[in-house]
Amino acid sequence: MVSEELAFRLNDEEYKNWLKAGRCLLLLKDGLLPFTEQRLRAFHGDLLNQRPPLRTPCETSSCKPRGNALASVCRGCSEWQREILKHHRQPSGTIHWTNCFPPNWRTDHWEVAKAYMPRGQAKVNRADEFDASALLNLINYCDCFSSVDPKLVRQVIQCRNELMHSCELRVKDDWMRRYRWTLRHFVQQLSFVPHMLTVGRQIEGMLTVDLSIRVFGVDRLDSAVAMAASDPDLLEPDAESVSRWESELLGEMLRECLCAPNEEDEDAKTQDAEQLKRLQGFLQANKDLGEKFSSELQAIDSLQAKGGEEG
C-alpha cells in the first residue's frame, strides 16, 4: 500500500522532476556497468602484460593510504601507483587514494578503478554497488575510455551534481530540458555499446511519464498506454517502484554526505554538513522516510553532536 506521504510528495511537480531525473541516473548506471567492466578488464590485462613489475605481489599485504596520501608502500604497489597516475587525465588533481586497497591492484581491476572515482568508495566490494557518479568519473579520468568525449561526460557529471546537491530536492522544467538534452547526446555517443539504445529509450520514457498517475489510483492516460504498448521498456511504473527509486536516491545522497571528507578539506566538510542538515529536515518532515532512514538520522545526530563538541 502506498503511503499518503508519498502521494503528497508526488503532487509536487518539481519534486517529481527531481525523482524522475534521479531515476534516469540509475538507468544510466545499469547501461554503463557492462561497458566499464569490459574496458577495465581489458585495460588491467594489458597493463599486466606490458609491465611485468606489476605482476609482483604486495610485499607486506598491508600497504594502505594514510589520510589521502599514499606513502611508504612497497615496490610493487609503487609501480601500480605510478601506472595509475600515468593513465590519469588529471594526475596533478585530487586523487582519492583512500578509496583503494593497493595490495588488490594486481588482482582486481575494479580496485584500480577506484583511484579514478570520487571519495567514499573504500567499502564498495561489488561492481554493481558503484553509483552513476563513480562510473562517470571513472570514464572521465581514466584514459582507457578514450573513445568517449570527456566534455560530454563532464556535462552529465555536472547535471548529476546539481541534482544530488539540490537544496530542496526539487528541479524546474527548464533544468529538466537541459538535462534531457545532455543525457540524450551522451547516450547517442555510446550507441555502439550493447543495451545503451534500450537505456536511451528507458530514459526518454522516464522523463515523460507522469509518476503521480498510479499513486493516486487514477486510470493511466491514453498516451501512457500507447507508449507502453509500443515499447515495454517504457511501461509506466507502479507506486511501489516509485517508492523504491526514491529510497535509492535518498540513500545515495545520505551515503555521499556521511562519508567524511579529508580533515583539511574545509569546504567539503561545510557543504556536507549543510546538505545533511537539509536532508535531516526533509526526512523528519516525512514520517515514512524518517522511519525508513532512522539509522541514518541517528548517524547525522551523532555527527552534529561531535561537531558541536569540537566547536
Score class of each variant (00 low, 15 high):
199 V>A: 05
69 A>S: 14
22 G>H: 07
141 Y>H: 14
205 G>R: 01
294 S>W: 08
191 S>K: 08
114 K>G: 04
133 S>R: 13
78 S>A: 15
260 A>N: 08
91 P>E: 07
155 Q>N: 13
121 Q>V: 00
270 T>Q: 04
54 L>C: 01
106 R>S: 09
131 D>R: 02
248 E>R: 13
72 S>P: 00
193 V>W: 04
232 P>Y: 07
36 T>R: 06
261 P>K: 08
53 P>N: 09
291 E>P: 00
186 F>M: 02
231 D>F: 07
236 E>M: 05
83 E>D: 03
311 G>I: 04
309 E>S: 11
18 W>R: 00
20 K>G: 03
68 N>T: 08
109 H>F: 10
76 G>V: 00
61 S>N: 13
46 D>I: 08
12 D>W: 06
28 L>S: 04
283 L>W: 02
3 S>C: 10
292 K>H: 03
221 L>P: 00
11 N>M: 06
259 C>V: 07
207 L>T: 02
79 E>Q: 13
210 D>Q: 08
15 Y>C: 02
115 A>G: 04
34 P>R: 07
87 H>D: 05
16 K>V: 14
203 I>Y: 04
311 G>E: 09
218 V>Y: 12
201 R>W: 12
247 S>Y: 15
64 K>F: 12
265 D>F: 11
295 S>H: 12
111 E>D: 01
272 D>M: 11
29 K>F: 05
237 P>Y: 06
137 N>V: 04
13 E>F: 08
197 L>H: 10
291 E>L: 12
16 K>F: 00
208 T>R: 15
146 S>R: 05
38 Q>A: 15
173 D>H: 11
41 R>G: 01
47 L>T: 01
207 L>F: 03
241 S>M: 10
113 A>H: 03
130 F>V: 06
132 A>C: 15
152 L>V: 09
109 H>G: 00
217 G>Y: 05
270 T>E: 01
94 T>G: 02
46 D>V: 11
156 V>G: 10
20 K>L: 07
244 R>E: 08
259 C>D: 15
55 R>W: 07
133 S>W: 09
145 F>E: 00
304 Q>C: 02
261 P>E: 06
198 T>I: 11
98 T>S: 14
88 H>R: 09
20 K>D: 01
101 F>R: 12
33 L>A: 10
186 F>W: 06
250 L>D: 05
72 S>Y: 10
270 T>H: 04
176 M>T: 10
144 C>T: 13
147 S>M: 14
32 L>K: 02
99 N>P: 03
38 Q>D: 05
79 E>T: 00
5 E>Q: 13
267 D>S: 11
138 L>K: 03
13 E>V: 10
54 L>P: 00
175 W>G: 03
311 G>A: 10
181 W>P: 00
191 S>I: 08
253 M>Q: 14
134 A>S: 14
67 G>F: 09
288 D>F: 12
97 W>K: 01
29 K>I: 07
41 R>C: 09
274 E>H: 11
210 D>W: 03
209 V>W: 08
280 Q>D: 13
260 A>H: 09
196 M>Y: 14
218 V>I: 06
60 T>L: 09
226 A>M: 14
215 V>L: 15
310 E>F: 11
208 T>V: 11
120 G>Q: 07
60 T>E: 08
302 S>W: 05
266 E>A: 15
306 K>D: 09
32 L>E: 00
171 V>N: 09
281 G>R: 06
144 C>W: 08
65 P>C: 03
269 K>T: 12
252 E>S: 15
119 R>I: 04
155 Q>I: 02
304 Q>R: 10
79 E>H: 12
